[in-house]
Design a protein around this nucleic acid. Structure first.
Lengths: 350, 350
DNA sequence: TTGTAGGCGTTATCAT
DNA sequence: ATGATAACGCCTACAA
């Protein structure tokens, strides 16, 4: 073995510790401030000095520490936080994409974290993001009390709620026209002669579901149709339960002639159940999904543009960050029926 | 109007600037260090002092600045970076989910950025993440030269390549068994008697596509079947082109009896085209997708577990972060055939 | 139990 | 054109 005097373990003579501006300054025989000038492309640096500094930077593998940089007052972390239920869900990943697209244009980065629909985790994640000094926050809330954010709002951090409004807190919000979408779905089915329309929904306490159910209920009532309790199934976010509900519904002595599913995941479960039993009621689902047009009976849905939610949220957020005067935003994004076949099946064929 | 002496614009007397530990210390009449102790739950603080500090914290809305905290040597940013092509693509969002799941267990956060398959942007994003001192990096590379990361590796930042290996760089890599998956697909079709098997692929320079095509080519050759150039379509990542290729293929005087699509997106485009024309060759696609089992002819695919790629990547990454001795990782994740119907159609029905 | 001094890596300010 | 010095908000080390 050779003399283990030096702690250098690389074949070249480069140290394996992360270099700082001071290291670069030493290597280039200039002051730290000159390195800072070069790194930040400030003017008034001699060309030869600049060149020398650049060489030292390349040789040492120096990279400006943006964390230290952001510590200086006025400097920003250029980071925004997003809290969602599950990034693997296409609805949320589209929102994230829309957000990130705008963020990239502003040279901001996006920290994404998954609450898994757990109020406690939501709050922990929000706090963790704020401790990291994200400059703005987008939240798809899982909890039922967001007053814990009021101080943060007062301190100037823009917080935008997506898909569901905040509770006990006033801040910018972007939601879908859930109720209107459901109304359109039910009116569509009514216009094809359906009178016994079942609904399969998830947790009725979740805002979106509650609104969609309200749209269902209101519309039937408005058309003078009494809701048959036997046709209402709740807490079917789980695919198993949605399928079971579908089977029970279709086995009723007087089954529904149409089914309305209040979400993507429920729709797919219901369609699977209908696929297995041989019955074919009319069907409309809330949320569009891939290949809906390719199924044996193409699926009519209430669609919307999730990526646009993210984009709009980002626009509001960056407007706030740039201190643009802006009233409280309460945006409602449109929903619309996409007619494909399943929603136009006539009644009386079950 | 009352005297506008104070700059306070809130009804209460709370300042609207973000408080620091010093502010809390002043409010509680203790030293900064005592506040630090309370904030970090250190022992040896008098209960009454602790209480007073907690009150000041609550009143001022103090939140520890983790950016400043991480500046102290030895402290970490507890952040990892992920560079992918597009988070809205379910394959990548599943990877992200797997990663984030493990990261959350370690109390790390995940910064996600989209390269949009642009090598330049990939590099910019990687650099931006490193400037933010992410402690580790996961990259689905778009570029063709990753030597720019060698210095960073030497400095100790774990970098893991996902789905595609790095070029001109040695580092941990997790890819799918692309070639083996393609081989299984082709052997499956061969076992059902197919001899004219077309392939529709994307950019042949992209690693995954190249491997999958190689698997196709090798397997045919190994079985003594000469590849018919007329049955090979490349650069069909665009849905339009994939559909066009399918139509041209099926209009050949001697059309293929089976089609192999090398990706998710291509599969869906091909199936759409086949849906329109009335022909029904056997079909196997690489990548599974939602509702593949619900299409009129359920779709046989080469499947894998994207979330597991993310999980495994995170495990390797955190092992490296904890300085666990670990040889260079070159993981190959398994792929397997999911038999559903479309891949078992016999030849001679076109 | 509590406090003081110094430094993390950068930028702002002011001097030379 | 270049440099010295003082922050930024926090934690470590040590002292009282």
């Amino acid at each position: 073995m050779s003399t283990p005097v030096s702690s250098i373990d690389e074949p070249d003579d480069l140290p394996s510790v992360r270099p700082t501006m001071q290291d670069v300054a030493n290597a280039a025989s200039v002051s730290l401030k000159t390195v800072s000038r070069v790194v930040n492309n400030e003017p008034r640096v001699d060309e030869r000095t600049r060149e020398r500094v650049h060489q030292a930077i390349a040789q040492l593998g120096f990279r400006r520490n943006d964390i230290a940089r952001s510590l200086r007052q006025g400097q920003t972390s250029s980071t925004i936080g997003l809290v969602i239920e599950d990034i693997a869900n296409p609805f949320y990943s589209s929102i994230a994409r829309g957000l990130e697209k705008v963020a990239q244009a502003y040279n901001y980065m996006l920290i994404i974290s998954n609450s898994e629909e757990n109020p406690l985790r939501e709050r922990e994640l929000v706090n963790a993001l704020l401790r990291r000094r994200v400059e703005g926050l987008c939240v798809v809330p899982a909890g039922y009390d967001h007053s814990y954010l009021s101080t943060e709002l007062r301190l100037g951090t823009p917080v935008i709620f997506l898909d569901r409004p905040p509770i006990h807190l006033q801040t910018d919000t972007i939601v879908l026209d859930n109720r209107g979408g459901a109304r359109k779905a039910i009116e569509h089915l009514l216009s094809y002669g359906h009178r016994r329309i079942a609904v399969i929904q998830g947790d009725p306490r979740v805002y979106t579901g509650a609104e969609r159910f309200a749209g269902y209920y209101e519309t039937l009532t408005a058309h003078g149709i009494a809701c048959d309790e036997a046709l209402i199934y709740s807490n079917c976010d789980d695919a198993q339960r949605a399928q079971q509900a579908t089977r029970v519904l279709m086995a009723l002595p007087h089954p529904p002639t149409a089914i309305f599913a209040t979400s993507n995941r429920i729709s797919i479960a219901v369609l699977r159940a209908l696929h297995d039993c041989a019955c074919q009621p009319a069907f409309v689902g809330f949320d569009d999904f891939d290949l809906a047009d390719m199924l044996p009976v193409p699926v009519t849905v209430v669609a919307h543009d999730p990526m646009d939610i993210g984009r709009k949220a980002a626009e509001v957020l960056f407007a706030r960050l740039s201190r643009t005067e802006l009233p409280l935003q309460q945006l409602v994004m449109p929903t619309y029926i996409v007619v494909r076949g399943s929603g136009e099946l006539p009644p009386g064929r079950v």
